[in-house]
Design a protein around this nucleic acid. Structure first.
Length: 786
DNA sequence: AAGATCAAGCTTTTT
DNA sequence: GCTTGATCTT
């Protein structure tokens, strides 16, 4: 891979690059945009620096200016800088922005990426030293659990009582602490019925034989590599003159060690973070790392960025009010020069559906400008939820009213069955020892291989110490397999021989190769013969998969990308409102933000509080802080009295965080469901009091205060009625009884037509009212909308 | 061995 | 309520 080319330059003397000379002509323009604190952070190049950067204080810009400064002053060449980010998104964004004005580094910072991505890069060069081959595959959580399950069963443990997922959790956690099986402290011995350490060791063994690493291993292996091979570490010390770390508050112990090892004598490390935005404690992140920085690096310079350029004063004040309730903080005071703007809006709803309905209408209204607000593009609006299952209510609603949306971080492209299958083929082709992948596709498409045949193969593999693929080859030639399974498997082994040879021969186009594999294996054919409504979509996805290959040099590079980078960046067509989790929203900003589901138990999440007590609650509070500070101009918080959980109705109290919002900065909107905003309440005979009593909701301090506030204010107008733009052509192209197809609901029949909506009885999803243009006649499923 | 029917567990967050 | 995995039936 080309990334490794500069290894040749490992020991070369620094030469001013073209980029540097270009910069010298127009020196340090990036400095012009910085405020004094930011400038201070940029200019403190030598020695350890901690940059405490509050939300929206221009952290990324400062970080990039620092990189530009290092290069301009020729302290380091771009490849001598190690820049670690927490997400791939952040890495990509920085790379993009660094290639533009005013930074304009023509030469990219090659060593910029997540801990995991950088670890892979390091491990590919030294895999043998940690017991892997350089073409090792990266297992995702799913593979990991499947492998562990095999080991649990093999150990004669009841996997019902001791589920593999739980063990995976334990092992992940240990890896977060960089504990190898030998290093797990005795205090942990009782985990998983006292079998965890033993199973962990077996798991690590197994990973080596199938030439694979899980996510935790990527960090762990680098740490052990550096600990055991000082000469290797010394190479990297010589290379990396400066280290920058983003989101330092999110680092776990393993990452902390990773950094400690990599920092050279000069301690040129700059860590950027915000303790108030530490929201990954559950994943092993240690806020302690950032709190302890000055102890770890005596003489460290600490710079605080406190001027916020993102949000209005009301929004900042609301966020501060919430986060102030936390106890352990380094302490920052955000301020802004911006004008007042709108207060944070707060609204209660009867149930989750009404909340979704209201937000849907509000989003539509805001597109055109409502309540004296400016119009907002859909791209400028986002709905941030605590847990991903909350997304469904919005998806359903938006689909029904035809509001374009995009789900960020939802079920991902690569997690789909067909993509995982296809990748399993690619994995075996590039890494023949990958038994897990082989197992996945050995009978997909159906090759007449059942439990019995598979067990025979596994036994042969274990007996001879070979991979499943080799074992299959053995059994096919020895004639131990019979019938359909024999001929089909012979073909499969044959196929892999050819494909593996093709992988090794780099004259081949990997794109064509991928197509050949999917074709010759019969995988594409399998879906072509499939008559279920999903089949066309799956074929479409496979095409997209092959198309995605274009951006990579080879199959392995692609597999690595998919394993590490889990986003589907595809849809940029037309404005859409975003739906994502609060965690997924970190680092993003939107002019208008909706924060639904502020109910105790949901947010703060009951589970967090049960498992981690006050610590958990404070992390939830930081999450609330992150949510509010995503908003630039308008922030709307809402809660529902009732919500369906597990299909069961449950009522909840408004979140305790609502009580923490400072009154002066909040505008209480009248709950439409309770005060005649349109749905439910009017004319149904059940008074507000009855509803309140039955739900036992409105006795909380939060609700009482809410009522007190709303009485002192004029009721705001219900969202003005809009004329719906009807695509009459689309409606009229359907008649009752038509068979239709819908992207989400599948096939169904038109039962009636109402305005621009069709009343459809879906085969799977039941009866729904759906906007006509989201439906296609069933005989034309090829050109589905979206 | 493949398809069908039934039960359980799930809903925190992600590299 | 939904999906996944396990068991049953052909």
């Amino acid at each position: 891979m080309s990334e490794f080319d500069e290894d040749d330059a490992f020991e070369a003397a620094p030469q001013p690059s073209l980029a540097q000379r270009a910069m010298a002509a127009r020196p340090m323009r990036y400095m012009d945009r910085l405020n004094p604190a930011q400038r201070e952070a940029v200019e403190a190049l030598e020695g350890p620096v901690l940059m405490l950067a509050g939300a929206g204080t221009g952290k990324t810009m400062t970080l990039m200016a620092r990189i530009a400064h290092l290069v301009t002053l020729q302290r380091a060449r771009p490849y001598e800088i190690l820049a670690v980010t927490f997400t791939n998104k952040a890495a990509r964004e920085m790379k993009d922005r660094l290639s533009n004005t005013p930074f304009r580094l023509c030469e990219p910072i090659r060593w910029m990426g997540t801990f995991h991505a950088l670890s892979v890069k390091i491990l590919r060069s030294h895999a043998e030293l940690v017991g892997l081959k350089s073409n090792f595959t990266i297992l995702d959580a799913d593979d990991q659990v499947r492998l562990l399950k095999q080991l649990i069963v093999a150990a004669g443990i009841d996997d019902k009582r001791w589920p593999a997922r739980a063990l995976a959790g334990v092992i992940d956690n240990w890896k977060n602490y960089a504990w190898t099986p030998e290093n797990v402290p005795v205090s942990q011995a009782s985990e998983f019925d006292g079998k965890a350490v033993e199973l962990y060791a077996a798991y690590q063994d197994r990973l080596k034989t199938i030439n694979a690493a899980d996510f935790g291993d990527l960090l762990l292996h680098v740490v052990t590599l550096f600990q055991q091979y000082p000469d290797v570490l010394a190479q990297y010390h010589r290379r990396f003159k400066y280290i920058l770390v983003d989101e330092y508050q999110d680092t776990n112990v393993a990452q902390y060690l990773w950094l400690q090892l990599l920092v050279g004598e000069q301690k040129n490390i700059c860590c950027v973070g915000d303790d108030d935005q530490s929201i990954y404690g559950w994943r092993g992140a240690e806020v302690g790392n950032i709190l302890r920085f000055e102890k770890d690096f005596p003489g460290a310079k600490v710079v605080r960025l406190e001027q916020n350029y993102r949000s209005t004063p009301h929004i900042l004040a609301a966020a501060s009010g919430v986060i102030d309730a936390n106890t352990k903080r380094l302490g920052k005071t955000l301020w802004t020069a911006a004008e007042d703007g709108e207060k944070v809006r707060l609204i209660g709803h009867w149930d989750g559906e009404e909340e979704a309905r209201w937000i849907g209408e509000e989003v539509e209204a805001m597109q055109h400008g409502t309540r004296g607000l400016r119009p907002f593009s859909l791209n400028d609006m986002a709905i941030l939820v605590r847990a991903s299952h909350q997304m469904r209510a919005f998806e359903d609603r938006f689909l029904t009213i035809g509001l374009p949306y995009r789900v960020i971080g939802g079920p991902r492209f690569y997690e789909r069955m067909e993509i995982r299958d296809a990748m399993a083929y690619f994995r075996v082709a590039t890494s023949p020892d990958d038994d897990l992948a082989f197992e996945r596709i050995v009978n997909t498409p159906k090759r007449g291989v059942g439990d019995k045949a598979l067990q025979t193969i596994q036994r042969a593999a274990r007996a001879n110490g070979i991979s499943l693929l080799e074992a299959t080859r053995l059994l096919v030639t020895s004639g131990e397999l019979k019938g359909k399974a024999k001929t089909e498997l012979a073909r499969l082994v044959d196929g892999f021989d050819r494909w593996q040879a093709a992988v090794r021969d780099d004259r081949n186009s990997h794109i064509e190769l991928a197509e050949v594999i999917l074709e010759e294996s019969g995988y594409t054919e399998m879906w072509q013969n499939d008559k279920t409504p999903e089949a066309p979509g799956r074929l479409e996805n496979l095409k997209e998969l092959v198309k995605a290959l274009e951006q990579f040099e080879n199959l392995q590079g692609f597999l690595e990308h998919v394993a590490l980078i889990m986003d589907n960046d595809s849809d940029n067509d037309g404005p859409k409102v975003s739906i994502m989790t609060l965690h997924g929203a970190k680092g993003l900003e939107f002019p208008a933000v909706f924060l639904p589901g502020w109910e105790d138990g949901l947010f703060p999440s009951q589970r967090s509080m049960d498992e981690s007590g006050l610590k958990g609650l404070e992390e939830e509070r930081r999450l609330a802080y992150v949510g509010i500070t995503r908003a630039e101009e308008l922030c709307t918080i809402s809660f529902a009295a009732n919500r369906r959980v597990y299909g069961q109705w449950q009522s909840a109290l408004p979140s305790r965080f609502i009580d923490e919002l400072p009154e002066d900065h909040v505008d209480v909107l009248t709950p439409p469901g309770l005060y005649g905003g349109g749905y439910g309440a009017a004319g149904m005979g059940n008074s507000i009091e009855e509803k309140a009593a039955s739900a036992n909701v409105y006795n909380s301090p939060g609700w009482k205060r809410l009522q007190a506030r709303s009485q002192s204010r004029p009721m705001s107008q219900p969202a003005e009625s809009r004329t719906v733009v009807i695509d009459s052509q689309a409606v009229s192209s359907f008649t009752q009884g038509d068979r239709v197809f819908h992207q989400k609901f599948g096939y169904g029949y038109v039962m009636g037509i109402e305005g621009d909506k069709l009343d459809i009885e879906f085969e799977k999803a039941g009866s729904k009212k759906v906007v006509a243009r989201f439906v296609t006649p069933a005989d034309r499923v090829d050109d589905v909308p979206f």
